[in-house]
């Protein structure tokens, strides 16, 4: 499997093909639409990353040193951004997730979504995912 940074670089390359913001967003919207929802039984309070505008649910499992994420949102663009984060971080070694640097967000011009609408911005999603990874790591040490 490709490393976190290899996947990030691939995403940056893919986004390089879009000249207009419309195309970029159309792609993210498409990712959002295609992302399978999480099992409704996980759509509970403790899995919510709450914000002012939309809801994000994030759950993870841990197997053979790797973290597997699933996520969803009630807004499509955010769901598309979640899909990108899953693509980069899901299935990666916990250690790598915990110390990852999500530079692709800036490189594809999505930095406005980092702090968007307070706590459910990309920044807090990334933080949340790293915390999951750290928790698994500390359990295994």
């Amino acid at each position: 499997m490709a490393t976190i940074n290899e996947i990030q670089d691939q995403i940056i390359e893919d986004f390089g093909l879009f000249d207009e913001w419309d195309d970029k967003y159309a792609y993210i919207i498409d990712l959002g639409k295609k992302l399978p929802g999480i099992d409704p039984k996980y759509k509970v309070e403790e899995n919510i990353i709450k914000g002012c505008q939309s809801l994000v649910w994030m759950v993870s499992t841990y197997k053979d040193g790797k973290v597997y994420f699933e996520g969803e949102s009630d807004a499509i663009i955010v769901k598309g951004l979640v899909a990108l984060l899953l693509k980069v971080l899901s299935g990666q070694p916990a250690e790598d997730v915990a110390k990852s640097d999500m530079y692709f967000i800036h490189k594809i011009g999505m930095e406005q979504h980092l702090s968007m609408t307070r706590s459910n911005g990309l920044a807090s999603m990334v933080k949340q995912m790293k915390m999951h990874a750290l928790a698994y790591q500390s359990k295994t040490v």
Partner: peptide, 12 residues
């Protein structure tokens, strides 16, 4: 259409 999605596109 979620209000946040609309807001993001209108801002663009």
């Amino acid at each position: 259409l979620h209000h946040q999605d609309l807001g993001i596109i209108l801002d663009k």
